[in-house]
Design a binder for these strands. Structure first.
Lengths: 145, 145
DNA sequence: TATCTTGTAACTTGCTTAGTTACAATTACT
DNA sequence: AGTAATTGTAACTAAGCAAGTTACAAGATA
């Protein structure tokens, strides 16, 4: 199965906190933009907070980014909400008596690791600031989606 | 969620067909190596057959690779069993009234596409022959896993 | 003909995510 | 101080997907 919308929602929330920083940033208001429930938003924000990407205050609706948006990458956000979950899964139950079954796990583990590094390396090159800039630019130029 | 073991099992099956081509390649025997049920093996092989990576005969246990192993990439196998399933999922339910909600889908779609291309591009560089060679080499050098 | 095998459908089970309900702890306003 | 709003988290429900199982018609093989 593909990565859940949790990751996309986390990026959405981070951009929202920046762009709407002068409004009331309650989980309820954020949830209206993400179109989900406030609890789901708080759940994601809890992960972002634990990864030190945002700062929140218990009881008070005023989350802020913990660092400059230019210093937060999409990889940071990915790791915050998905940990280091593999994109590809090795089958760990194969027959050790068989030439293929005994070797395939180790071989695929290595190759998958390389592929995943390539993907995450790309995420690392994109910053939250890039996303925010694109949102503003596209919005001003009247893109509907 | 990550890609299921179906993909790993598909690579396993392809390598098995090559390495054990002089034995009886029934779905039951293949299943013993993958340690799953014959039906699961046949299901995967059905996808590989539809993608023209192997040739099978209804009723007869003699599957063969449809082309040279050096001309089959891990990307071919991936596309055969997972189609073009996205590794990352855009949340398609966001608020169009909101600056962020109205723009984020399109922006993430683009970036995800680039990241996915990077990953699949890596898979394309690895051939089934590479995997087979590594299996044989590691097996001969006595690797347990 | 008799037996084995493939290919596929239908069902069950288990896992993961998203959404919901509930509530204690904290903040903030008056 | 007291009240209302909010966060943070746990527990539960519901939906979606993969994998395993059962069953069986259609084709191969000897």
């Amino acid at each position: 199965m593909a990565i859940s919308t949790r990751y996309s929602d986390a990026i959405h929330i981070m951009a929202f906190i920046y762009i709407y920083q002068n409004t009331k940033l309650s989980s309820e208001n954020i949830a209206k933009s993400v179109m989900t429930s406030p609890v789901v938003v708080r759940r994601i924000m809890s992960a972002l907070q634990k990864a030190a990407l945002i700062k929140t205050t218990h009881g008070s609706p005023n989350p802020v980014l913990a660092k400059d948006a230019a210093n937060i990458t999409l990889l940071d956000i990915y790791l915050a909400v998905e940990n280091d979950k593999p994109l590809f899964t090795v089958d760990h139950k194969t027959n050790p008596q068989c030439i293929v079954g005994s070797q395939i796990q180790g071989i695929l583990t290595q190759h998958y690791h390389e592929v995943q590094s390539a993907a995450l390396g790309r995420l690392e090159r994109i910053t939250l600031q890039d996303i925010i800039d694109e949102i503003i630019t596209n919005y001003k130029s009247g893109k509907d989606d």
